[in-house]
Nucleic acid binder design. Structure first.
Lengths: 335, 335
DNA sequence: CTGTTAGCGCCTTCAA
DNA sequence: TTGAAGGCGCTAACAG
């Protein structure tokens, strides 16, 4: 049962290969009877068009490249789930690129993506910088391959379609909430300054803090649990008596902090109120259960793929910058 | 700067396109000087061979299909990370298929995979059944596309190369450990009976229990936290006073159980010892910290991809069934 | 509505 | 060591 080609089908159905091609791609252009006959033969032979020949001839691949930083982050994984669901609707296949310490030169990787003939690119990388943004822009303009940023924002430019939530506003809201609880020493637990999205959260936090005339406290640590555990221990030793509110840029960071705080005898939320970001399983599995910003990450994936498909089809996209609504989930780490 | 073709390179370098093709695929067959010249032009033009044309002409795609059940499970995501790292070494691209409630007919999806011209298939699906296994076998035999099962085992047949750990033995070991602690009423918390891997864990649990002359208690629930929380509540209400040991098939299930047990006033590990499976972030973030079986999931991904590459290259694989070593991690939920 | 005919960009004998 | 030429399987005008 070696693979049947369009040629085999044509012969067996007594038509030319053009007709076979048509019944597959423009069925309305072929007479119903012949169409049915061809379809019948296709079924008998188990014929599936060779994706490569098709892509070469049509200069379209019905595949999109999806570029992510690291699968193990649950926000990334969930988003990919959403993308996959939507891509399936259009019969698009997904070519996956995982950035994680593998591509010294990201520009080169982009070239690879272009060579892969993907019809479009879904880019998710919260470490995006100017060079990468420019490269993406270049690919879109020069090569005509549409790019959509998913859960990734680059605040200094807005020529690329992006789907995200309003992280600035979300951070502002939760910080405000802590202030309204009467918290005076609110810390933001964040990562090294290279994650754009986290910069946005910091800005939102800052706005709320300044409005209330409080003092800003930005504490940078790692996403790695063993590392941030040590950092939090030190932080709590030095400032343990001061901190009464925390906004963490990720759920897992929030939970890790809570664990250390409790170990140091602090009561959550009596002594310290804590907010996380994302609403992952960590949030519901932690004790006390974590209050957090709920990010519709699957929807972000779905919408990003949806918009990419529109761009691939040459349709006009009304809004370059798409913000999905977020939710504040109050559980047990806040009052 | 539209895409450069091999033809452009040939002209600019003053050679034929055959020579360009050779310097890329069989560099040793071209004189160093011309090779360098060609390479130089390639660089200048930013030329990347069109993957589709290449695939069509060579009947190889340098891409592998990777089939997974659901990205949001952290074991799956981690494994994909491992696969990506290894695939990068061979310059293979990854075509991702997510099964999650999307393919009514999996056989049809396999056809899609074949049509995609993937050189090989990495299959991960712990719900694998006879039909799926047969389809995979057929694809490997009829179409000559190698298949490797990653972290999924099908105990009733062994014609497909598989990479996993010895789940049976691991479950046996942790159950034994609980028995050695003096536990008498050890429950296994597992899922609906469709996950092969979990069947293996049950068997290992059973062996240890029977050896010790104890009573088996298999409790089936869902992986969904809100669902299993309810189940665990009922379980603890009915048997709360009996249970003194637990082996859960996933970390998240273990943590969810622990949370409910503590809420019911049970002390962990004094009253109940608990083991999880996988060693995910959930295990280190939970309080008390979860003891569990550490599964080298990234290595499984790496090795699966490694073996697949060997098969693609037509190399002989000594061992069809590859078991990587696991570890028992003792933390705070066991004595 | 259907068939003929060029390619799509690259690899790979076969000669030179 | 190199070039010429014929496909790989399919799409897309262009005729008919």
């Amino acid at each position: 049962m070696s693979k049947a080609t369009i040629y085999n089908v044509a012969i067996k159905a007594g038509v030319s290969l053009a007709t076979v091609s048509r019944t597959l791609n423009n069925p309305e252009k072929v007479k119903p009877e012949t169409r049915d006959r061809v379809l019948q033969v296709i079924k008998e032979l188990g014929y599936k068009p060779n994706a490569y020949a098709k892509g070469l001839a049509s200069r379209k691949s019905t595949s999109v490249a999806i570029i992510v930083p690291d699968m193990s982050r649950s926000s990334v994984a969930e988003m990919v789930n959403g993308i996959a669901v939507e891509a399936k609707k259009y019969d698009y296949s997904l070519i996956l690129y995982v950035l994680k310490d593998k591509y010294a030169d990201e520009t080169e990787m982009m070239q690879e993506v272009v060579a892969s003939q993907a019809d479009g690119i879904l880019y998710m990388n919260d470490e995006i910088n100017e060079e990468q943004y420019k490269t993406l822009n270049m690919i879109q303009d020069e090569y005509g391959v549409p790019v959509v940023l998913a859960n990734t924002v680059y605040p200094y430019d807005s020529s690329l379609t992006t789907v995200s939530i309003d992280y600035y506003q979300a951070a502002y809201e939760v910080t405000k909430q802590l202030i309204d609880e009467g918290r005076k020493n609110i810390f933001m637990l964040t990562t090294a300054r290279k994650y754009m999205v986290n910069d946005l959260k910091e800005a939102g936090y800052q706005k709320a803090i300044e409005e209330a005339g409080l003092e800003m406290n930005i504490f940078r640590t790692s996403g790695d649990i063993t590392v941030n555990t040590i950092h939090f221990n030190e932080l709590l030793k030095e400032n343990g008596h001061l901190i009464d509110g925390v906004v963490a840029v990720r759920d897992s960071i929030a939970v890790s902090f809570i664990n250390q705080a409790i170990e140091k005898g602090r009561k959550i939320p009596e002594d310290i109120s804590v907010f996380g970001f994302q609403n992952t399983k960590y949030a519901s599995l932690s004790r006390p259960k974590l209050s957090c910003v709920d990010i519709p990450i699957i929807d972000i994936g779905v919408k990003a793929m949806y918009l990419l498909k529109k761009e691939i089809d040459g349709l006009h996209i009304e809004e370059k910058f798409n913000e999905l609504p977020h939710n504040i989930i109050l559980r047990q780490t806040t009052k």
